[in-house]
Design a protein around this nucleic acid. Sequence first.
DNA 1: AATTCTTCCAACCGCCAAGTT
DNA 2: AAACTTGGCGGTTGGAAGAAT
Length: 288
Amino acid sequence: MGRRPCCAKLGLNRGAWTAREDRILTTYINTHGEGKWRDLPQKAGLKRCGKSCRLRWLNYLRPDIKRGNISKEEEELIIRLHKLLGNRWSLIAGRLPGRTDNEVKNYWNTNLGKKLQGKTAQNQLNKTKEKSPEGKSSVEVHQAKTLETPRAIRTRAVRCTKVILPQQEGNQMNYIDNILHELVRDGKSSSSSASSTQGFMDEDSDFLMDFDIGDLFLNSDLLEVAGCDGIQAADHECGNNSSSSTNYSFSDHKILLEDSSNKEIFEPNAALELKKLCSFLDSDDEWN
DNA sequence: AATTCTTCCAACCGCCAAGTT
DNA sequence: AAACTTGGCGGTTGGAAGAAT
């Protein structure tokens, strides 16, 4: 038995929503709440499929939707998050109150993608020209564009067990230390054992403090001080199944992740290992 | 003024993972 | 364990609106 056919095959309405349909949907959800999308249209008296109702509500009718132009601050945040997360629009939108994944995606495709592509292509072109002044410009532009692929690749990491940072001079190390302290103080750590952060960065520390990996990654200050210009992930097949092992690399800094088969990647040259910095609150949690 | 081209974005589509039976 | 349902996601499309010719 397969899926039930969607609206197109049942003679339901398609295309742009009318004001009347919007009113019916809004009234119904305000009365009965969200969910049960499959049955909603029939109960509400709409000639739409549930999926269409859900999309209309989430992307347009919800009361907390922020409409209007994306601000400069929002744009900068989108760019930073995209650098880290790639095309994971729902995650990015989750960090922009009132914005939907569809809106962020559209904004990226119509504004930022082109803008940044132009910039990076030009940078790459300049670099290539430095190396070979006689360059073939059209080829170079093409090559630059092919380097545009997002740096973040979707992964299936289930937990992060180690963060490795190279030894650095005091000031910078203290700065990272402070940021990590702030994460704990702000309640971003999931661990109740976070009452003391003394010795947090000590080389021999054996603390088992849990961190939300998302918050850690998204703390731009930490990424910046770590010299990170994005997360690079190398996925590869493990045996015959499709699970992937994952190595997130911040330049010389390594964040080591386990895949579902508990494989780890370890960077032996790292000077400092922070054990269990980023294991998840609940081991069932999956970061993907 | 008419036509063509370009841009933008709401909506659709197919796929997937998790939950349920 | 398998079949099925549901909700959610990201990629793509189509049409409206505006710009260019």
